[in-house]
Design a protein around this nucleic acid. Structure first.
Lengths: 244, 244
DNA sequence: CGCGTCGTTGAATCGCTTCAATACGCGTGG
DNA sequence: CCACGCGTATTGAAGCGATTCAACGACGCG
């Protein structure tokens, strides 16, 4: 018996394994401890012990590291349906900070609750571990992106990846998506200066590939962008039945 | 009842949680399916389905991605005691390639064996998940390294991290360690050209910080190197009792 | 002995950063 | 209601860090 997924997480997991009524209600139960956080206030601070994880219900956050010299590297952006700080449960310390970019709603998940849900629902456990593995694969691809691609390829690749992720939770398509990021966010994520990000965005616009402005990204030539970025979404996909 | 750890994996896990006799023997059992692979032959190839993981028993490997334009980004090096391809078990596809740098010995671990071991030994499961989380934290730090540090800082940071990891399995100390990597490996890992790696190594040598040659790395001024790299090993450490 | 891999070094070039200045929208308080 | 400040976007000019191209030496191995 299937019903409509009531949370972005359910929707995301549902995209690769059909969830039963029982599994959906377990997912709902994880969303009990609701908290709202204002944009700008760090949710988690680098180096602090942290025993809880969060599920992002609405809004955008980014996880980042600050270097002693003051520069910042954004490791990843999280969108609704994503987990925050799953890793710090195990390491018992957060190795990064998490900043809400917009006002956000999160559900606090105690490690015990999560482990209970896992032991009662092995399929759910696999689904969530799959999501965690996918997140890790994205960090790896991010690493490749920064290490071996030119600035314009990086930006193009980043926009395409984000678009694919948003599509999975119904927040975007090949025509575009709305977002809260600034050019400074892009710069910190891609290891570039904001000045250069600006120039690159101009070129992408002049080349008729994509139009990026505050609040919205509009793809003018999706396939052209894929070609430029050599974008290969294998690491995001999940062909075939993951669970039999 | 404790005994001497018989494998690098047991040694590594034992460094953060005391393992019982029973747990050690389960670990031993995971090492049954032994395989030897010659240097250079890819162990796993990008894009291929892959249902097994491996534990590296001896030798060095690197996991990397090749871009369509031919350039290569090394994501991580694995040393004895490390897992290979844990992620591809869940994603059912390998998003990267694995190349043995030296001749290596691996133990093939079927996903079913691993899951059985997990359900019988929750402490062991936690220990291995801890190791996986630490690996992920290293990839994140690698990302920060490439995104926001200068070439000389990158190289310094990389050497220090590797040194800390090797120390954990008894293969290195603050005086130095032996390794099989070439300057080309460094270049591909750090997002630099091999020519520039060479220049940077020369400068590190002339500054009396570290002497890197084929086969061996010798720290001349460990603390100076730590300062240069702004090296903070929190993400590698595990203070306090992880498991009560 | 010849060839391949690895390391080394110089010179020219370029992609990106840095510094600096301007513009625009928006909220806030005088 | 407008002046002001702040965050964001934009653009030019100068400079530098890293790449690229090219050549050569050292070493090990078949």
């Amino acid at each position: 018996m299937l019903r409509i997924a009531s949370t972005p997480l359910a929707r995301k997991l549902g995209a690769f394994v059909a969830l039963s009524e029982a599994e959906l209600s377990v997912l709902d139960k994880l969303h009990q401890r609701r908290r709202s956080i204002k944009a700008g206030r760090d949710l988690v601070h680098q180096g602090q012990p942290d025993r809880a994880a969060y599920i992002l219900a609405s809004g955008w956050v980014c996880s980042y590291k600050i270097l002693p010299n003051g520069s910042r590297q954004i490791v990843d952006f999280q969108i609704p349906g994503d987990f925050l700080g799953l890793r710090s449960i195990l390491l018992h310390i957060s190795d990064h900070s998490i900043e809400p970019i917009t006002n956000v709603e999160v559900s606090e998940v105690l490690s015990t609750d999560l482990l209970d849900a896992f032991s009662e629902n092995p399929r759910l456990a696999t689904a969530i571990l799959w999501a965690a593995s996918r997140d890790e694969a994205m960090v790896v691809e991010h690493l490749v992106n920064i290490g071996r691609r030119s600035a314009i390829e990086r930006v193009a690749h980043f926009l395409l990846e984000l678009s694919a992720r948003l599509a999975l939770v119904g927040m975007g398509s090949k025509t575009g998506f709305s977002w809260p990021l600034t050019q400074y966010h892009l710069a910190d994520a891609l290891g570039l200066s904001s000045v250069h990000v600006n120039r690159v965005l101009r070129q992408l616009r002049e080349d008729g590939l994509v139009h990026v402005r505050e609040g919205f990204v509009k793809f003018m030539n999706y396939d052209g962008l894929v070609e430029l970025a050599e974008f290969d979404a294998t690491y995001l996909e999940h062909k075939g039945p993951m669970l039999k």
